[in-house]
Nucleic acid binder design. Sequence first.
RNA 1: CGGGGUGUAGCUCAGCCAGGUUAGAGCACUUGUUUUGGGAACAAGAGGCCCUCGGUUCGAAUCCGAGCACCCCGACCA
Length: 569
Amino acid sequence: MRLSKLIASTLREAPSEAETPGHQLLLRAGLIQQLAAGIYSFLPLGWRAMRKLEQVIREEMDAIGGQEVHMPVLQPVELWAESGRLETYIPPLLIVKDRRDRELALGPTHEEVVTDLFRKQVQSYRNMPALVYQIQNKFRNEVRARGGLIRLREFIMKDMYSFDADWDGLDKSYDAIFSAYVKLFKRLSLPAIPVDADSGAIGGKDSEEFMYLTEVGEDTVLICNECGYAANTEKADHRKLALPEEALADLEEVATPGIKTIEALAEFLKVGPERTLKAVFYAADGELVFVAIRGDLEVNETKLRNALGGAELRLMDDKEVAAAGLVAGSASPVGLKELAKREVRIVADDTVLSSPNLVAGANKADAHLRNVNYERDWQADIVTDISEAGEGDACARCEGGTFDAKRGIEIGHVFKLGTVYTEKLGAKFLDAEGKQQVAVMGCYGIGVDRLLAAIIEENHDENGIVWPKSIAPFAVHIVALNPDKEGVSEAAERLYDELRERGVDVLYDDREESAGVKFADADLLGMPLRVTVSPRNLKQGSVEIKGRSEADAEMVPLSEAVERLAGMA
RNA sequence: CGGGGUGUAGCUCAGCCAGGUUAGAGCACUUGUUUUGGGAACAAGAGGCCCUCGGUUCGAAUCCGAGCACCCCGACCA
């Protein structure tokens, strides 16, 4: 490719929309162009990198027996009704109507479609495990796009699905794909670590995310400084402070004028926040949910959502709380259901079971209750772990370890789905005994655009991108200085042609630009090898070869240049 | 959806508060001359529905109202 003909130009200044170094480089190097929030075009260089990246992913998926397919973007909503996700999938599906008013969802993921494919194609255990994957555009009705390619509304995903004859088989498939991911990220020069994760709207049991740790990440990962246990905050198990056992004391109302927060309450009554009961109100699909949690803990909305069966959650504001006949600053589960003007569900964190004599609200302003005890004074509809772990909290997986918090980008996610979809959609096969069985499923995603963004975030310096060889848009970048002088242009053209004949991907800077501009662009674009052809070098019968990450260049005789470069590329 | 911010040339921004000639700069782009090893110099040019709609006014990029878009923080996820 001749740089003079490239339909994208480099930018000296990054558009103001970009904040992270990676996003700025993506725009400055002319790899992508935004069309709308979370929707981007890939320009020639960006698309070449994407295609190479896809190819590396394909090789790793094929290596473990993956079979590439291509499934439709348009998915009949009836299929989603069959799996039960038409109502529960959050955010809601993007749905278009065809000319006969039939509703089609733009696929945000393909569990339903692939399960349908499997049930129609595979009838025997002999064809299993079945590993199918595709690399394809996904559409999500995201609440908020973010960070360039980090969070998109339309994006490219590599999604693989495994179908096994039994649960042991699923474990094996999962492990094989897990290992393939480890290998893949290593090959891409990207340090990514697996962490425990919630399975969210996809469903299923075990699930791990591959995180690239970076300050610009949007997820928070907790890592135990003792045992190494790593988990997304939405999933992390922490050891909550245990309170000493004590005899239950009598309920007692105390005046707490103007006290509305746990902090103020603890201060006012001279007790630790762990001796208080915090009340938080949520609207869960319109239903009023009262969450009771010890004052020293925070609500983990993912855990809460799971406890409520996947409802869409929203914190209620004080007005809504008041409209329900309750007092936001002094709410209490004691006598709550009698007082509330509408149906209310009470969800309690499991710490309430072992935390005696707490201070809770009195359901009226300026008053609280002492010695509130679960069971005796109030009961919840659901009692489970709904508290969020944070930095410094004790790890539940070992003795003595505490969590460090890190930011990360989730570039891959693997799930053991089990039989959630295969049962609903009737994906059955015959086993060795001729008995009908339901297939056991797993799914494994990689966000390809996001992966590209992470690779750039990880592989750049102050001058630009430093492409890993495996996905660089071009292997060699020829810089011709003073192309109109002393045979420079001829030598550069010949090098360009001969390298291409050898199958090397070459970018050729044939523009009439000053040396400074050309070198700066070469650094910005970041191809692994730079060859400088100039009058000065040609006088010695040489060209200059420099690796993008090397400090110094090497003079190589012109006659050997093609051979050398072809060997290095 | 809640909170914060921004919309003026391809990009970065000034002008707006205190309304008043043909709306500016730098970068990028075109032409010419001179340069030529780390974002050159000079000269000449092209390029703007000042986000949209409505209002106030003799007159609106500027003031007022509504809307839209984009960015950031939270809920969603690859």
